[in-house]
Design a protein around this nucleic acid. Structure first.
Lengths: 138, 138
DNA sequence: CTCGCAATTTAGAATAATTATAATACTATT
DNA sequence: AATAGTATTATAATTATTCTAAATTGCGAG
């Protein structure tokens, strides 16, 4: 536990983020629950351990994590942002019935933006699928 | 103009949508303005031609269009949905400064979802990039 | 060690997009 | 023209997010 916390602090520092109890707890949640949670999911679990936790802190912390490259924001659904601690190149598949988001491996992707439109720089790539998972497809 | 309207009506019917003035106007707007508009952009322009237009109608119409496969909904940004009349496979690039969304051609994309997670069906694919376009990159 | 400052967190208000609701208007058919 | 079903409108309600100002925390200088 102590070891684990030291580890979490090291990760935060590596990304230039000053550790605080809230930030450590949120990072720990993201690492141990690879469910691409939304704000509500993170808040509702953590507020039990930390009764004074504010939802604004969860927003602030995840904005900070995203800005520093520690997490990605996923816009796989209208009206809510999901957060992902895995930052290597991969896509997502969301089952529209059970709402679970699965990781998708990406191969051979090659894209071309019209040369007249674009020669700038790309910050983020997002590859999303929506449908029904096997269990829900029946 | 009359010819054009007949054409728009035919498109709506082809997708099983009963034509109404509002639906024709919204479809015409999408076809003639390939800007991946959000609801506000569509509403604010069309309300000048049709002063009684309600924003709820714009929402209803675009939901209907999307359900019937006439348009796609793009979740390229938090907190707003963009609408696209082009439905063949392609991606998008959004400049975070000027907010313009460009089409992106997709080649050789090959994906794999973990076999244990997924054998269901896919409804929608969305490939988005965010960054700065050439003009804004300076 | 403790004081002061800056950063962080908190609570709640404000905002913005979307959805729901109920009344009105329209359309097509008889 | 009457009717039934559908579409549109106006508005209220909801939800996610952002903003704001005050309270709290924690670190560094003395």
């Amino acid at each position: 536990m102590l070891n684990n916390n030291i580890n979490l602090v090291a990760i935060l520092k590596e990304y230039g983020i000053k550790p605080s109890i809230q930030r450590i707890e949120i990072l720990e949640f993201l690492i141990e629950n690879r469910i691409h949670p939304n704000i509500e999911a993170i808040y509702s679990i953590l507020v039990e351990k930390m009764p004074t936790l504010s939802k604004a802190t969860v927003y602030n912390t995840l904005d900070l994590f995203a800005k520093n490259g520690l997490t990605n924001r996923l816009f796989i659904e209208a009206n809510e942002v999901r957060y992902d601690i895995r930052t290597d190149r991969h896509g997502h598949f969301k089952c529209e019935k059970c709402k679970i988001i699965h990781d998708v491996e990406i191969y051979n992707l090659d894209t071309e933006i019209n040369k007249n439109d674009y020669k700038g720089m790309i910050y983020a790539e997002e590859i999303n699928y929506r449908g029904l998972c096997e269990a829900c497809a029946k």
